[in-house]
Design a protein around this nucleic acid. Sequence first.
DNA 1: CTAAAACCTGACGTTGACGTCAGGGTCAAG
DNA 2: CTTGACCCTGACGTCAACGTCAGGTTTTAG
Lengths: 125, 125
Amino acid sequence: MSVTTADAERLVRIGEVARDAGVSVRAVRYYEQQGLLTAERSPSGQRLYPREAGARVRFFQQMYAAGLTSRNIAELLPCIESGHTDAEQRAMLHTERDRIRAKIDDLQAALDRLDEVIEVTASHP
Amino acid sequence: MSVTTADAERLVRIGEVARDAGVSVRAVRYYEQQGLLTAERSPSGQRLYPREAGARVRFFQQMYAAGLTSRNIAELLPCIESGHTDAEQRAMLHTERDRIRAKIDDLQAALDRLDEVIEVTASHP
DNA sequence: CTAAAACCTGACGTTGACGTCAGGGTCAAG
DNA sequence: CTTGACCCTGACGTCAACGTCAGGTTTTAG
């Protein structure tokens, strides 16, 4: 059993990646289009991904949920993969971090407002 | 100085409401279209709002920021104004509350992920 | 009185992350 | 061998909260 054969056996098709990450097949293709994901191709043209692709896609979802755009994530990836950043990238990271922090505070405030409403209407049924 | 005159003097036009709330005039018209806001009309057809309209719009913004839709907010308003809720409304309130809580947790997780990246890339410049 | 600022009603345009449909290959199972 | 699950590439559709433009009336400042 050669190494290359073992490697090939670890490749999965797009459907499995999607199921693994809990997103649609269309979404995975979209991520590729946005430059977030690359895939080998089988002789017949089918996309082949390493197993980690699922986790990678879940990471995308996490960033999307935090309000990052595909472009933001694309800029973020080189930082993660190289473990190295230039000034511009560091600025971007801090900008996004601060944006998320602000958003958390906004959400917390909204939550408090809603809890107020819930409390008031609970005592006045 | 009659009461009605004094009331009339407290009415403001759409531009002031917008500035007060930090949104566009277009947005305020949109909120009316969504049934979130009603306005009297001057003889010439211009919208006239009570002063509290600004605060009301800021409340909308806060809810929008929390991910509520116009429809959600519209359902929410009667609860606030009447201080009374039926079962369906209470369910809605709790659903939205839980959604926001979950979103805060998601954001916190994303923030931690980003801080990881920032820390790693800071020590590997 | 006049010009600028503010307002009005449509109605089409924008953005992002996909959904969905059309039309057609591919591949293990029976 | 054919059926059904899965895959491919376009390319148009969606949804929400507005932006923006057109074409016209009203209000306000000087």
